[in-house]
Design a protein around this nucleic acid. Structure first.
Lengths: 359, 359
DNA sequence: TTGTACGCGTTATCAT
DNA sequence: ATGATAACGCGTACAA
């Protein structure tokens, strides 16, 4: 194959064969208006005949100083990531935004929960990086800085010089908490996702909360507690379960513990729809009906939320807009724009049938 | 930013500053054993001081003729793709396989259901391409050939010169069909996914079947019919619904139609677990209990299959192995290996509780 | 249209 | 052992 490569025709091959300069052949591909149609056609025909497939992408990148890709870094492997519908939807919007600008998406998945390896970042052929919900101290983030690549962060604390897309996590959590508070619930539990990237699962005590590395989690907990405080619920009495990921099975496990407490919570605030769906399942398995005996609130409003039984009351965030904004920000940064103000994605409460007044 | 770039130090900058040749600086990064530790450290220190982050990835690629990435082409956008757990799991295994070899994954999503744009393929900086379930006539496949890139196809007919990972779709479908046949079912329906990439949904007549573009779909249908024929069920009397994607909502829609037929089928063979879960939902909404009144069989055995209610009888395929094999094949092709024999992923029937003997 | 000066490394091969 | 020299890769862009 190295052989094959070696034999490959280049711009020069075509130029010599046609009897023009290399520049002209380049123009035939990139600026058709710079030469006569007849010549252009002769060039293309010769290229086809010699099996030349057009300018080499890598060489072009070297010359233009444009790698032509947007890198996307995430915390975990792809599997856990894409089992999270919220991420899929966001990523889809991101990818089609950058695709429209002739750029593709380079995926840099995390290896052991700390994000991508620094080495992978250092060698990535990319012009700009989008980081999604990485721990603040991820080596990958340091690598991005070291390379001086423009950075867009999503669901993550702003870094100096980076652009940011954020969801009003605190505000959304407040909405959810006030909702159950207004319904009369007084024993309310929180089903959270990871506070740090160490795979820990279990009840989260104050010390654990204080050492948290994921901003999204801490923001939402703060919002929940704030909203509950407005209904005279003391933060110290709100049980919190930390699930190491946003998948149903983990939600079910956490809810089983929360709903086994004495006194039993009458409402559970969940940090994602996936966790909430697991919680509904757990409640049912414990013989508790939702929402009659326990109210469940989700977060995200993914398609599964309206599809579930009962349909889920949840905090809606516009995931498509989030992905699009991240993509546009990346494209702008790549063109030399300054980071500017963080873009905030609004949230709103979507009341469905998984919540009801406390009996 | 172009300014920033222009000012960036290069290997030469460092070399001059330290007073050595460019080659030596290159060696300091890539072959530490080729120079003294002291010199190496001096070089690295100077580099750090000048803000040099190591050899430029694009330039390195040009010199080594290795783009350092594996491209993955899929039919649809990312959203529909990743809402399919079977793909997520496979892709996760693929990505970690290539990541271990210091290569990243370049995503080339489809735009309008025909796969990626040819242009995107022509400009992709990649050494090898993995195509997943693309229609045979996708322009992206032609582009890969034109560029002469090694190709691995997954769930798709073999192309000349391409390596292939395949699941024994026919065999798996036969297993599913024999299972319901053995349970005494005689009125059996098929819930299929797309036959062609045109978004059509509805009952599939023989002409539609004949014009199908997706091998997976046609293979499974063939397998289902073959298995049923063994129980004296006439192929012409098996109703087939074509869903344009593998998501629950579409499964529900299709099953609603199938279960509304007269005579009503007592078993539905579904081409994915997601479709099957939608079918269970549809059955329940029609007041039919699963499996007492209707048996449902899935395909894939994703985590959701054992999580559903009732747990799903399904055809298991080893998705992790599928992704890993595709990755290894890609790495091998990239090193010049010949395609070799197709790799076949085994299937086996996983009997759970969504199927029962016909009453 | 063309000449030609870059761009930024890698990797023999050669010299000390 | 260490380090230097120089060819090479494949385009782009601008002045002529």
């Amino acid at each position: 194959m190295t052989q094959d490569r070696a034999r490959r025709p280049t711009l020069d091959t075509i130029a010599q064969r046609v009897g023009v300069s290399r520049a002209t052949v380049s123009n035939a591909y990139n600026r058709p208006d710079q030469l006569s149609t007849a010549l252009r056609e002769r060039i293309i025909a010769t290229a086809k005949q010699l099996g030349y497939a057009g300018p080499d992408p890598v060489a072009r990148s070297l010359a233009t100083k444009q790698a032509g890709s947007v890198a996307f870094m995430l915390c975990d492997g792809l599997s856990s990531a894409f089992s999270d519908p919220a991420l899929s939807i966001m990523l889809d919007a991101l990818s089609s935004t950058v695709d429209n600008e002739e750029r593709s998406l380079l995926l840099l998945p995390g290896t052991n929960d700390g994000g991508p390896r620094a080495q992978a970042v250092m060698r990535a052929q990319t012009d700009v990086v989008v980081a999604y919900s990485l721990p603040d101290d991820a080596p990958a983030l340091a690598a991005v800085r070291e390379r001086g690549l423009p950075l867009v962060v999503v669901d993550q604390p702003e870094l100096p010089g980076s652009a940011r897309v954020q969801v009003d996590d605190v505000g959304g959590a407040v909405l959810a908490a006030r909702h159950v508070g207004a319904l009369g619930h007084r024993r309310v539990a929180i089903l959270a996702f990871a506070l740090s990237a160490d795979g820990v699962r279990g009840p989260a005590d104050p010390r654990r909360l204080a050492s948290a590395h994921f901003r999204v989690s801490t923001d939402r907990i703060a919002g929940y507690l704030e909203g509950l405080a407005g209904h005279s619920i003391v933060p110290g009495e709100v049980p919190i379960w930390e699930a190491p990921g946003s998948v149903r099975e983990l939600g079910r496990e956490g809810a089983r513990w929360l709903l086994g407490l004495d006194p039993r919570p009458t409402a559970v605030l969940c940090m994602s729809d996936e966790l909430a769906l697991g919680a509904i399942r757990a409640a049912n398995e414990l013989g508790l009906s939702v929402p009659a005996e326990v109210s469940i609130v989700g977060f995200d409003d993914t398609p599964a939320a309206s599809w579930s039984d009962p349909p889920l009351t949840t905090v809606r965030q516009d995931l498509v807009s989030k992905g699009r904004q991240a993509g546009e920000l990346a494209l702008r940064m790549l063109n030399g724009a300054r980071p500017g103000k963080p873009v905030t994605i609004d949230v709103e409460l979507q009341v469905r049938r998984s919540t009801a007044a406390r009996v």
